Simulated scan of single mutants.
Amino acid sequence: MDRYLTFNQMIKQTYFKILRQFLINLFLFYLLPMSLTAFTNITEKNAGAFTIYFSTASWIYISLILLFIITKNMRDLLEKIKQETIIVYNQSILGDTNENDSAKLTLIELIETRQKIQEMQSTIKKIIQSEKQQKQELMFQVSAAAHDLKTPLTVIQGNAQFLQSMYIPGNIGQCLEDIDLASQQLNLYFNQLINYSKTFYNDTSNWESLSSDYLFELFEQEIKLITDKKADIQFSNNLPASIYLTLNLNLFLRAILNIVNNAIDHSQSSYPTIKINYKLIDNQFYISIWNSDSSFTENLLEKYGLLFYQDKQATDSEKRSNFGIGLAFVKRVAKIHGGQVNLSNFDNGALVTICIPI
């Protein structure tokens, strides 16, 4: 018989196996011993009682043999089905494609189930890869378009600044100031869009392992450059010892500077306090950035990280300086580093925490 069986064939095979084992055991442990045994002390008076006793004992003995054989074979059958089900689960759900385990499968229904699941997984993987490729191509096109638009924008901004240096009567000077301001906003928008698109490039050349001491010193220098006379910056290192972090320094530093810039722009104070804290918990590196006199709205806490999302509860000035790219960029950077970003309102201020594994 073929080693691959359907469930019905396996049941029939078990049935005939039980019958065969029962007949063999009946012969070896009942008929043969009985034929070789001589019964004595049987008289006419006790013959009826002996017959009843012998028949009852025989049926009990035979029933026990049959029960033992059925129990053993059913247990073996269920154990085999269980083992093959586990193999299908490991191969199809957990992605374990051990060929030795595949060779152990004998139940046709489970083999077909495994094949169907693997086909479904393969289709899903192709769809995901296709969507990922399309998203990368789209971000590349967006980045290229942003680069192309920056050139004429620079010309417009340069001409507007040049004309502003000349004496121009009437409202034309105000128009030039508006053009210059709008050009600056567009330039900032394009820069943020280009930085966001870079997070989709699979470029491993920019990844490196760096010590925490070096990183903290670099972070402090860069943050102080952009916050000079704009905020009170306080650093706190709670790491028990120096560690090494593998990261894309360019993207990670931009994400931190983005958070600090947003903290200054959205603070209600003209000179806010910004606290930056480093800590290590369960092999996870945390960098927390808290700024005073600021808070996140409920809408932003629910939908932060969505590209181009602008908070409807924000003020008009905040909307003009927020393009819905900054937090999406920070969240994307945390994701490619295998971590996450969390926003919360804490101690009368806004708290942003980035967590990445070490």
Rank of each mutant, 00 (worst) to 15 (best):
S197K: 03
L218T: 14
S197N: 01
L176P: 01
Y214H: 06
Y214C: 02
Y189G: 05
Y196V: 05
L218D: 09
Y167H: 08
L186Y: 11
D213A: 10
F162C: 07
L215S: 04
F162Y: 15
N195L: 09
F190E: 03
M166H: 12
I168W: 01
G173M: 06
S205C: 04
L181Q: 15
I194C: 02
T199P: 01
F162W: 13
G170I: 01
M166S: 08
Q164S: 09
Q184W: 15
T204D: 13
S197F: 03
L193C: 07
Q164T: 05
Q185T: 09
Y167A: 07
D203N: 13
L210Y: 07
S197Y: 00
K198A: 08
L188A: 14
I172Y: 05
D180S: 14
F190D: 05
T199W: 00
K198T: 15
N171A: 10
N191A: 06
G173D: 07
S197A: 15
N202V: 09
D178C: 05
S211G: 13
S183W: 00
N202P: 09
T199R: 02
Y167T: 08
S211L: 04
D203A: 07
S205P: 01
S165W: 01
L188M: 10
E177F: 11
A182N: 11
Q184P: 06
P169R: 04
W207S: 08
T204R: 12
I168F: 02
S209T: 15
S205A: 08
L193S: 12
L193W: 05
S183Q: 02
N171Y: 09
S197E: 03
L188D: 12
L193P: 00
I194K: 03
M166V: 11
D203R: 07
I194Q: 03
N195D: 15
L163Y: 02
L193T: 11
L210D: 02
N187I: 09
L188I: 08
L181V: 14
F216D: 10
L215D: 04
D203Q: 08
E177K: 13
Q174Y: 11
S197W: 01
F200E: 06
E208T: 13
S212A: 00
P169Y: 04
D203Y: 12
L163N: 01
E217N: 14
N171H: 08
M166N: 07
E217Q: 15
L218W: 09
E217G: 15
D213H: 06
Q184D: 12
F200R: 07
N195H: 11
F162K: 13
D203H: 06
W207C: 07
L215G: 02
N202E: 14
L176A: 02
L210M: 09
F219C: 05
D180V: 08
Q164L: 15
L193F: 09
